[in-house]
Amino acid sequence: MSAYFLRRLLLIIPTFIGITVLVFTLTRLVPGGPIERMLAEAQLGGQKASAHQQFGSQALSEDQLQQLKEYYGFDKPILQSYFEWLSKVVQLDLGESTRYGEPVWDTITQRLPISIYYGVITMVLTYLICIPLGILKAIKNRTPIDNLTSLIVFIGHAVPGYVIGIACIAFFAAHLEWFPLGGFVSDGFEDLSLTEKALDLLNHSVLPLLAYMAGSFAVMTFMMKNALLENMAADYVRTASAKGMTFRQAIYHHALRNSLIPIATHFGQNISIILTGSFLIEKIFNIDGIGLLGFEALMERDYPVVMGILVISSLLFLLGNILSDLCVAWVDPRIRFGEQR
């Protein structure tokens, strides 16, 4: 078993290289990179031209373009610059953001606590709500309660999180003024006492969390419900019941534990989701998290940041997959990885 996990760990390396090579190549081949963006900005209207300069008629010489390419590291062949990038990554250097001019690592870690905060709370709350709800729905399968909750959960699933977010802001924050319009904490946060700090944070978190969670109920709830239904039909529950256990006991002692397996499988994948968040929700609530950073980096063609986030999220995803398997093995000792595959 440990040999299996060791092999899985080693296989991360080729996969990781594959992912990064692909995306790296893509960033090189796609037009609209930082240089072209500079060229466009120097010329087109819409942006105010600076008062005393007019660059309109000027074109850059080959030398100057070459200099720009050097500055952005676009002057070398793709593979060569990829390996230069990779050798830096191995030394834990993700390079510098072309947009912010500061190390990518700093850019990411500044926003990490915010993303983790929302990610972890969303995940915990989702589990806390979905597991009991799934159990309830399984036990009360095809009753009005089941139908009603299905409807609610599906509506939450169907309406995109950002739409819920915007509606919440318009109603609860702008109209009723119950909550602030956005941001992570208030302006004078540093001066508050500990309880005030907690309240302030909570106050800012309610609406974004609502938007985050609305969509994530459906998958988890139904996974739980289906798994439990399946186990309720299984022979051992039948046997347990035949031995005189009540329905309730049979479920709680036998079916439930096994039903948690698929939920556990899902756990590892959540890790990378925690990080990436939803850039649209972050955008409307003005939360400076990783999702927004990634989206802005992509739109502004800040490729070092794009690659940096990819490195972190894909590593987490790969590790998360392995973690999932570990979870499964822990929940269900009967499963032995690596033996039959």
Partner: peptide, 10 residues
């Protein structure tokens, strides 16, 4: 995308 548009035009 604005910069892609600009490139096409240039």
């Amino acid at each position: 995308d604005p910069s892609a548009q600009y490139k096409t035009i240039m």
